[in-house]
Design a protein around this nucleic acid. Sequence first.
RNA 1: CGGAAUGUAGCGCAGCUUGGUAGCGCAACUGGUUUGGGACCAGUGGGUCGGGGGUUCGAAUCCCUCCAUUCCGACCA
Length: 572
Amino acid sequence: MRTTQFPLNTLKETPNDAVVISHQLMLRAGLIRRLSSGLYTWTPTGLRILRKVENIVREEMDKAGALEMLMPVTQPAELWQESGRWEQYGAELLRFTDRHNNEFCMGPTHEEVITDFARNAIRSYKQLPVNFYQIQTKFRDEIRPRFGVMRSREFIMKDAYSFHMSQECLQETYDRMHQAYCNIFSRLGLDFRPVLADTGSIGGDGSHEFHVLAQSGEDAIAFSSDSDYAANIEKAEAIAVGERAEATEEMREVDTPNAKTIDELVEQFDLAIEKTVKTLIVEASEDCDADFIALCVRGDHELNEIKAENLAQVAEPLRFATDEEIKNVMGAAPGSLGPVNCPIPVIIDRSVEILSDFSAGANIDGKHLFGINWERDCATPEVADLRNVVEGDPSPCGSGTLSICRGIEVGHIFQLGTKYSEALKANVLSESGKGQTMIMGCYGIGITRIVAAAIEQNHDDWGIQWPSSMAPFQVAIVPMNMHKSERVREQAESIYEELKANGVDVIFDDRKERPGVMFADMELIGMPHRIVIGERGIDAGTVEYKNRTDNEKQELELNSVVAKLIELLNNK
RNA sequence: CGGAAUGUAGCGCAGCUUGGUAGCGCAACUGGUUUGGGACCAGUGGGUCGGGGGUUCGAAUCCCUCCAUUCCGACCA
């Protein structure tokens, strides 16, 4: 490609609504343009990168035996009503009506459509297992789109759905997808980790997220110092260390009119924050006798809402009680709540169970209890894992301690079970001739998000440093003074033609620009290999070569540049 | 949904306080000089000043209203 025929559209200044580096560089390098909130146009340069990612994903999916297909973006409401998600899904689902007054939505995902397809197309166990996938646009009306294509409303996703007769068979495909994902992210040249993810009500170890490690990531991941264990913080099990100590204090009621928060309490009464307990009131589920449940975690810990929501006694989705409801149920306002003399069922975190001589609200406005001990002052309530793990917690795998780091979720694989196949009655005939509900798995990769994640991980002061597999062009040819020097033009043209003939993705900067402009553009866009052709080099029989990621320039023999470049490309 | 800020050329911004011919830099275009790290000179094109309403002889500027965008927060007592 020639830059005179391939507009680069680079920007010297950073548009001021871009806050993360990938968003800034994507705009500056001319990969994307914003159309509206959370909606982006991909330029010719950007699209080349997107296609590279797609193709790697496609190759590895095909290799793993999945079948590509394509489903509509627009989906009829009936299917969503059948699965029950028309009501469940909130405002994130973009709904609209056609001219016949029929309701539709823009697909945020395709479980319903694929399950509908499968129930019609698959009749017999002989057709199973099967794994379908597509690479296609999704729409989720995010509350707050941000960070460019990292969290946009419209985005491209590879989503796959597998169908099985047995759990074992699902597990096999799941493991194969796990491996395929590792292959994909390795080929893309990303520093990534598969991590255990929350599986919601289904439970088990049936879900992994794939995270690209980056400071700007929106998710927190917990790692073991000594093993491969890695889990999303939402999922990482929090283990209490130590045993409950003997009581040494008497329980006493203290006036704390100005302590509404744990921080205030700790400050005003000089308490150790690890010896305080905070109490949160949430709505109870229908399984529970009471309308509300009290959850207790240590003052220095945070409630994990996902863990809480997964408890049988807690309503799904999780909802915190309003101040008014708390007042009615507890007889005291938030800020003075505690597990002692609590009128509603209490569930405490494991780390709270092993506390002694601790402090909590007295369920009387403006009063706290100090020196509380379980059993003596209050029966030990039900214990559960309720909190987020923190740095230094013991790893749930049994070896090492946890450290926490941030990641960008680029993939998610999930054992769905029969959630959708049951709702949509996707049955097949088994070997014994009886109808059986198919078991499903689903496997997603955020294609557009990968591009942003790769930049977060690979950039410097000059711009993007593409991993070779993703670069829009492999080699950039930068001629010096080509519009004056016929020799430079001839050499540049001939190297360009030769590289093209060898199937190399090459960009030839044949604009009538000053060298600095060309260098800056090629570096900003992140071309991995650059050769500079000038009079000086031609006289010496050489061409200057520079790799985007290291600062050393080297001279290559003019008459063997192409062979040498091809060799470099093959070595990656 | 709550809070804050912003909206002026493709991008970055000034002008608004104190109403009076809509500006600067970058980018684009033309011509020339330059040419191994974002050049220089001369010139050109490009604006519903977010929309609507009001005050006024006169509004980018003052008032009302709507909209959009960005940032922070969204129940952790």
